[in-house]
């Protein structure tokens, strides 16, 4: 048990260290949320309004945080494919540590970096007219962490057996983009046709974005308890699958 904790820590440490070292990546990954907020948000905002009294850019703000968390999580999960490609995964898989600690370490690292990356988007809040208090910031950080834990776990389960980056493009186009659009980040889920709503209900992103909206804007589609329950359940199931997939190989 103590050995496993040590292993989780060191796997986490490696990823976070590399994230921290790559300052240019941290800065450049702020460009995308900025584009969404200030170009898409302001542009669409001139024609559309968000639900209730909320302006469109404000409405998008939690969604853009969610997007940043989503993309960073996927990027972290994909680090497994990098590790495999460059051989480092073998070093991890042959070590006297359990497969669960590998998955948990990777997932925690992904959620740490995604939370840090997402928290940087909070800097834009004053520019889009969103007021943030300390409790709101802390609650948002907690949701970002939990959401990215779920998303990274899903990503790891998907990437664990992937041998190349070809599959990654596929995942981006077929899963990640629809997950983003059908999460209520860009438009509310409630107004959608029935089949799209069905997809949205099965989308873990939707619950994360909903939770962020409740905390930051006070608008909601589901209850916060439901949001968190779904996110945690997805995390547990995805991690379980990821461990099983990993156990299957050597």
């Amino acid at each position: 048990m103590r050995e496993d904790l040590g292993a989780i820590y060191v796997i986490w440490l490696r990823e976070v260290l590399k994230f921290w070292r790559d300052k240019s990546r941290i800065i450049t990954s702020l460009i995308q949320p900025a584009v969404w907020l200030f170009i898409m948000g302001k542009g669409l905002g001139s024609s559309f309004r968000g639900p209730g009294n909320v302006g469109y850019v404000e409405f998008m703000f939690p969604g853009v945080i969610g997007m940043t968390v989503l993309f960073t999580s996927v990027f972290s999960a994909v680090s497994i494919i990098w590790d495999r490609e460059f051989g480092f995964l073998k070093e991890i898989l042959v070590a006297p540590i359990s497969r669960s600690s590998v998955v948990i370490g990777k997932a925690l690292a992904g959620s740490t970096t995604a939370m840090l990356q997402g928290s940087l988007v909070l800097v834009f809040a004053p520019l889009v007219g969103v007021q943030l208090s300390i409790p709101v910031i802390l609650k948002s950080l907690a949701v970002m962490f939990l959401l990215s834990l779920a998303l990274t776990s899903c990503g790891i389960a998907g990437a664990a057996r992937m041998e190349s980056f070809h599959g990654f493009q596929l995942i981006m186009n077929f899963f990640v983009m629809p997950m983003y659009f059908l999460s209520g980040a860009v438009f509310p889920v409630s107004g959608l046709p029935a089949w799209m709503k069905l997809v949205a209900v099965g989308n873990p992103m939707a619950y994360g974005v909903d939770a962020l909206k409740q905390i930051i804007l006070g608008i909601q589609e589901f209850s916060l308890v439901r949001d968190i329950t779904v996110i945690l359940s997805v995390t547990v199931v995805a991690m379980g699958i990821a461990v099983l997939v990993f156990k299957g190989e050597g």
Binding site: E3, G6, F86, F88, K90, E91
Partner: peptide, 22 residues
Amino acid sequence: DPSLDDNLTAEENLDFHGRIYG
């Protein structure tokens, strides 16, 4: 085949290994 992390230093690669092996 190589199995080092190119983006870590020599020391960090060894440190990772040492930690993971307790």
